[in-house]
Amino acid sequence: MNLIDLIDYLGTFAFAISGIRLSAAKRFDWFGAYIVGLVTAIGGGTTRDVLLGVSPFWMHQPSYLIVTGIALVVVILFSKHLVKLENPFFIFDTIGLGLFVVVGIERTLDAHFPFWVAIVMGMITGSIGSVIRDMLINETPLIFRKDIYALACVAGGVVFMICSYLGVPSGMTQLFSALSVIAIRLLAVKFHIGVPVLKDTFDEER
């Protein structure tokens, strides 16, 4: 297993945990929670692979379904401990976001697409799973709120590109990119930084 595969599995686990925890808050049953966790974990990567014209990654091996199952077991067995963490959904969602941006960029570059496409695919890999998750649980997707979410993915992609052009070793580039996404998301929430809301001036004029 190479580094990018390890990052992919860690991201899958983190995103699956976030989806399953949110399902628990909505009082889904075990199977429903598993489905939401799985969709959260593979939704972005599946969208990326379809756009890149390749078979979705999870169809080549069952490990991603197994990792999601492990995440479900962890939530079931250690739910009381997870609840004690400060906002566990946010923590795991943010970690998964940073890791998946790196995976999306690497997979796109491996397919010989230019860097600007890789940055877009990094954003898609990181954020689309959460969009599908939120739709399934009847919530407004985070990407459409004023939270810094997709923009953090883009920033991580830019950091990846800069490090690559500067000749930074691959492992360090991946680390810096993931950490930048996580740091931007954490700082944005801590200091209440968000994207301005688009106001409906039509209603005001009426």
Rank of each mutant, 00 (worst) to 15 (best):
G171Y: 13
V131P: 13
H192M: 07
S18A: 15
K80Y: 12
A150N: 06
S63C: 09
K146E: 14
V67H: 03
K84C: 00
G104S: 05
G69P: 02
G37F: 09
S180Y: 11
W30I: 06
I132T: 07
P62Q: 01
G126P: 09
F31N: 11
K80E: 13
G129L: 08
L52Y: 10
M161W: 13
I95K: 04
N138F: 06
A183G: 00
E86A: 12
D110G: 13
S170P: 05
G53K: 03
F115Y: 11
F176T: 06
F90V: 15
L22Y: 01
I76C: 00
V189F: 02
C163H: 04
I143E: 00
I70M: 09
L85Q: 10
L166D: 01
M123Y: 09
P114M: 05
F113L: 13
I162C: 10
G32K: 11
G167N: 07
M135P: 01
L77Y: 02
G44N: 12
S170T: 06
M1Y: 15
A155M: 09
C163I: 11
V181R: 12
M135R: 10
L82A: 06
F89A: 09
V101N: 08
V36D: 12
A111M: 15
F191Y: 12
V83Q: 10
A71R: 08
I128E: 02
V117T: 14
L22T: 14
S164Q: 14
D200S: 14
R21H: 01
S127N: 06
E106Q: 12
H112N: 14
L187K: 04
F28H: 07
V74M: 14
L142E: 01
F92E: 13
L109I: 15
T94A: 07
V39K: 10
D147N: 12
F100D: 04
A150I: 08
I193T: 00
P56T: 11
T40N: 06
I4W: 12
G96T: 03
G19E: 10
T108R: 15
G104I: 00
S18G: 04
S127R: 00
P141K: 14
I95F: 13
G156Q: 13
C153L: 07
I76G: 00
L99G: 01
Y165R: 14
I95D: 05
S63E: 15
I42L: 15
Y149P: 00
L198G: 03
F202D: 06
L22D: 03
V117A: 15
D147A: 06
T173N: 15
A71H: 12
P169W: 06
L38Q: 02
L187F: 07
L186F: 08
G122T: 11
S55T: 15
R133N: 04
A118D: 04
L77F: 13
V101C: 12
Y149Q: 07
L85N: 09
I162R: 02
V36L: 15
I66G: 04
N87G: 00
S180I: 03
G126C: 03
F176P: 08
V74R: 02
Q174Y: 08
F144A: 07
L22A: 15
A118I: 08
I184D: 00
G96H: 02
D93A: 01
F113S: 12
E106M: 14
